[in-house]
Design a protein around this nucleic acid. Structure first.
Lengths: 146, 146
DNA sequence: TAATACCATAGTAGTTAACTAGGATTTAAA
DNA sequence: TTTAAATCCTAGTTAACTACTATGGTATTA
């Protein structure tokens, strides 16, 4: 069970935009440089987030992206579901389904599903921005050794 | 984000053994027939569960597997972590790690992780056996249309 | 005019999941 | 004592998918 780079890079890009768009819109190329991700790949992810209503854009020279809503109002759950095309852990829709034995697993998957959604729905972009600020304030910061 | 066939087939096999081992050990070939999974693949999954202490075995003719503990004492969390080699949604261990930006994501992954583990740790094999019995008791059972 | 968003789709390389293959060992039963 | 049914063990193979990359544009605007 894992979350793909879509979720990871997309979320990072969103945080990047939130942090850097105070004075002017943030271009994809500048995000790409900071995050070391190709502009082409970022384009795909950011486009999804714009369509989903998390971002606004300005076209033309000096254009770029900015948040469409306050970071307190952007749910990480909504963002991840957008980027990952849903977060459900397994599909109970395949051709196997319909067998009595199989459907018992529904109990498990539903419980996991509910719990994952509840976890990410109680997190907001603002929380992550805050966490990042705190992290950066640690001057002698320890490496991430989770 | 998904759970692999290891978790699915393995869990099904465990339920199968629990249900069918009252009089004699359950052979891999009989599970394979009931669940439509190859014996070779099942072997690997069941072997893991045996090593993890959920199953006992009897070798030789008429041998097979049975639960090593009561189904009330087998946690679905333990089983899935065994089968899937952990349930963590992403690794914060790669070479990217160490960058300040990246580690913000830890907040998200940790929260998901805790919540998934809590969900499956509060489910026990007995609960699934019970759910299966109830399911089968519905004589006119509706198809699984989750 | 150049920098940007916006759009679509195809290709491709690497990784991983999902299985397959083949044999060694144990043991009840013929 | 032989046989066949079973567990046990380790590799190998294949198919799907992820994670990009590439291409080639059009539209917009400082």
């Amino acid at each position: 069970m894992r979350i793909s780079t879509k979720g990871r890079y997309g979320l990072r890009a969103l945080i990047d935009i939130a942090v850097n768009s105070e004075t002017e819109p943030v271009s994809i190329s500048s995000i790409g440089e900071r995050q070391s991700v190709s502009t082409s790949y970022l384009e795909q992810l950011i486009s999804k987030m714009k369509k989903a209503g998390f971002l606004d854009s300005v076209r033309g020279v000096n254009g770029g992206y900015m948040l469409a809503r306050a970071p307190e109002e952007i749910s990480i759950g909504d963002v991840l579901r957008t980027l990952e095309d849903g977060l459900t852990p397994a599909n109970c829709l395949g051709d196997e389904c319909g067998s009595a034995d199989f459907c018992v697993e529904k109990v498990v998957w539903e419980r996991i599903n509910e719990s994952v959604n509840a976890a990410v729905d109680s997190l907001w972009l603002q929380d992550l921005i805050q966490a990042q600020k705190e992290f950066q304030n640690e001057v002698e910061r320890e490496n991430c050794t989770l």
